[in-house]
């Protein structure tokens, strides 16, 4: 849905790094090197980034189109 605030396994705060990561990977950089650059060293935190799918944008569009606004 939306990127987690903390790593599920170790509890390190990683939420603030997501937008930077996403921007740089979309620009064509290697995800592994971006993570090294951001200081994400542990494998548990790294999998949070590389396995995440940001679905909230699609769900918002669905909500706006099909769900009536609250009265």
């Amino acid at each position: 849905m939306i990127f987690p605030v903390r790593c599920f396994t170790c509890g390190k705060v990683i939420g603030h790094l997501w937008e930077d990561f996403e921007k740089r990977v979309k620009r064509g950089e290697d995800p592994g090197k971006v993570l090294d650059d951001l200081g994400i060293k542990k494998e548990c935190c790294r999998r949070m980034f590389i396995s995440h799918i940001e679905m909230i944008d699609e769900i918002i569009m669905y909500e706006i189109k099909f769900v009536p606004p609250p009265q």
Binding site: I2, F3, V5, G15, W18, D57, I60, E63, I64, P69
Partner: peptide, 14 residues
């Protein structure tokens, strides 16, 4: 402690 943690995303009118 960190300023740029996304809490939620809001669509138009939300």
């Amino acid at each position: 402690a960190y300023e740029n943690i996304p809490i939620v995303k809001l669509g138009p009118g939300q």
